[in-house]
Simulated scan of single mutants.
Amino acid sequence: MEQDFLNQLKATDEIFEGWDFSYVSETGRIATSLLTWSYGSIVKSKMASATSMLDMGTGGGELLSYLRPYPQHIKATEGYQPNVSVAKNRLEPLGVTVLPFEEDHDLPLENEEFDLIINKHDSFDATEVNRILKSGGTFITQQVGGDDCREINEWFNVPVSYEGWNLEKAENQLKGAGLRVVTAKEEFPTQRFYDLGALLYYLKAIPWQLEGWKQEDHEDELYQMYLRMKKEGYIDVAQHRFLLICEKL
């Protein structure tokens, strides 16, 4: 096999920390088409009038660190243990309290503690969101749908991990918990991988895309993918994103 292919197989040797894809995104090895909304712009607009705020599932705190200035009372939660120390190191010097948690339905937070809760690409329990959100408060979430990058699963014959998770299901859960949905959008932007190493690095960062998958068991398929990318210059897959903005009456 070609040396370049063997070198690209080593992409997973690179360190991935927090929720930082700059190793492949900043070098242009992965690109994504645009959504019709900006999660960051929506959040910044709501932050202007918020006095208390929670970033639910902050990852390594990367996004939240760019959303300053903050409301007077601000916290972040993170359920993935390796990210907790990363988030603490990044956010606590900025005045953000970072709290680890284990279960979506049992967050270490007070009843009606926040007038703004944000959540980008993290799971949530709708009843728990309602509990910790103040009356008149806003919940903003951008979610990764169950059909995200489904083509990758099909290439390797691996079942999709979150089958059926979509806008309608999430909207029904939030309405059932007593929240009023004011905005609901769902789109399927294109994600483009320009080399095999970028794809493998991506899969290392989100192992739940291919549950139980082992790279060493699929070198033949990976080599065929490498040849395709070498010939065509890239491969495209469809992402799955949806946005919900809710209010507590």
Rank of each mutant, 00 (worst) to 15 (best):
4 D>T: 10
12 T>M: 11
12 T>Q: 14
17 E>V: 09
20 D>G: 03
27 T>Q: 09
28 G>L: 06
30 I>M: 14
36 T>P: 08
37 W>Y: 14
37 W>F: 08
38 S>A: 12
40 G>Y: 02
41 S>Y: 01
42 I>A: 05
53 M>T: 15
54 L>H: 08
55 D>K: 11
55 D>I: 10
57 G>H: 05
57 G>R: 08
62 E>P: 01
64 L>E: 07
66 Y>C: 08
68 R>K: 15
69 P>M: 11
69 P>K: 11
71 P>M: 08
83 N>W: 06
83 N>G: 07
87 A>Y: 05
89 N>L: 04
90 R>Q: 10
91 L>F: 04
92 E>K: 06
94 L>W: 00
94 L>S: 02
94 L>M: 09
95 G>H: 11
102 E>N: 15
104 D>I: 07
105 H>G: 08
106 D>N: 14
107 L>V: 03
109 L>H: 10
111 N>P: 02
112 E>G: 04
113 E>S: 15
117 I>D: 03
118 I>E: 04
118 I>M: 09
118 I>A: 07
118 I>W: 05
120 K>S: 13
121 H>I: 04
123 S>L: 13
124 F>W: 05
125 D>A: 14
125 D>W: 06
126 A>H: 06
127 T>A: 04
128 E>P: 05
128 E>G: 05
129 V>Y: 04
130 N>A: 10
130 N>S: 06
132 I>G: 10
133 L>Y: 03
134 K>T: 07
138 T>G: 01
138 T>M: 01
143 Q>W: 00
143 Q>F: 01
145 G>H: 08
146 G>V: 06
148 D>V: 01
149 C>H: 02
153 N>G: 15
153 N>C: 15
153 N>P: 05
156 F>W: 05
158 V>M: 12
159 P>V: 05
159 P>M: 03
159 P>S: 05
161 S>L: 04
162 Y>F: 15
162 Y>M: 12
162 Y>L: 11
162 Y>W: 12
163 E>F: 04
164 G>W: 03
167 L>Y: 09
169 K>E: 14
169 K>T: 15
171 E>W: 14
178 G>H: 07
182 V>G: 04
183 T>I: 13
183 T>G: 03
184 A>D: 08
184 A>F: 06
186 E>I: 02
188 F>M: 05
188 F>P: 00
189 P>G: 06
190 T>N: 11
192 R>N: 02
194 Y>N: 13
194 Y>V: 11
195 D>M: 00
195 D>H: 00
195 D>E: 13
198 A>K: 00
203 L>P: 01
203 L>C: 03
205 A>Y: 01
206 I>A: 13
208 W>N: 12
209 Q>W: 01
210 L>P: 00
212 G>E: 04
212 G>K: 05
213 W>G: 03
213 W>C: 04
216 E>T: 13
216 E>D: 15
217 D>N: 14
217 D>S: 12
218 H>R: 11
218 H>Y: 14
220 D>C: 06
220 D>V: 14
221 E>Y: 03
223 Y>M: 07
226 Y>K: 02
226 Y>A: 02
227 L>T: 10
228 R>M: 08
228 R>S: 01
229 M>S: 00
230 K>H: 03
232 E>W: 04
234 Y>G: 09
236 D>I: 02
237 V>F: 15
238 A>C: 14
241 R>F: 13
241 R>I: 11
242 F>V: 14
242 F>K: 14
244 L>V: 05
248 K>G: 12
